[in-house]
């Protein structure tokens, strides 16, 4: 298996990484950078959304991105949401709404929410459910997650 060198931006930091080529971005984030917010839940099928990160501002499943494909791109993980590690308004909204139970899906949900609100600051419920359709939660029943996104939208709207 061949190696390659990849240059990309990870949470605002420039990265130069020499690695085996046939690795997923998810494996690299978790194993090489100890960024374990993005989770593997479905075994790399792209079914569950627990590994959702932003690639050039768009929500993608990190398990379905090969490391070579991030050359020259911007990767944002949940660890990079705020510069000082404090809670982002979206994370706060999830806490306030009680949208977290076991927490395993939460980082993916939060990142999918971030992508949604960046593009659509005032989404309606249909848009929220559509944007989160690729993120599975087996605890909450989704109602509180939808509420969390609505809280976050209001909060971010007021901040602006």
């Amino acid at each position: 298996m061949n190696k390659l060198t990849v240059h990309f931006t990870l949470n605002q930091q420039s990265i130069r990484l020499e690695t085996l080529a046939a690795r997923s971005l998810l494996d690299v984030l978790r194993e090489d950078f100890a960024l374990t917010g993005a989770k593997d839940s479905c075994g790399g099928d792209g079914e569950c959304g627990a590994c959702t990160i932003l690639l050039d501002g768009e929500a993608v499943n990190a398990c379905l991105v090969l490391i070579s494909q991030v050359e020259g791109r911007h990767v944002l993980t949940i660890e990079g949401l705020t510069p000082d590690g404090s809670l982002h308004p979206i994370q706060n909204a999830y806490v306030q709404a009680g949208a977290i139970q076991c927490g395993y899906c939460t980082p993916g949900m939060v990142m999918a929410t971030k992508a949604l609100l960046d593009h659509t600051p005032q989404p309606d419920e249909t848009q929220i459910r559509e944007a989160l359709a690729g993120n599975l939660c087996r605890c909450t029943g989704y109602t509180k997650i939808v509420q969390a996104v609505q809280f976050a939208a209001t909060e971010l709207h007021h901040d602006n």
């Binding site: 792209g46 959304g49 959702t52 690639l55 768009e58 929500a59 993608v60 499943n61 379905l64 991105v65 999918a112 992508a115 949604l116 559509e130 944007a131 359709a133 690729g134 993120n135």
Partner: peptide
Amino acid sequence: IGSTQTRNR
């Protein structure tokens, strides 16, 4: 097709 994540890729 799929989800937002799928359609973005």
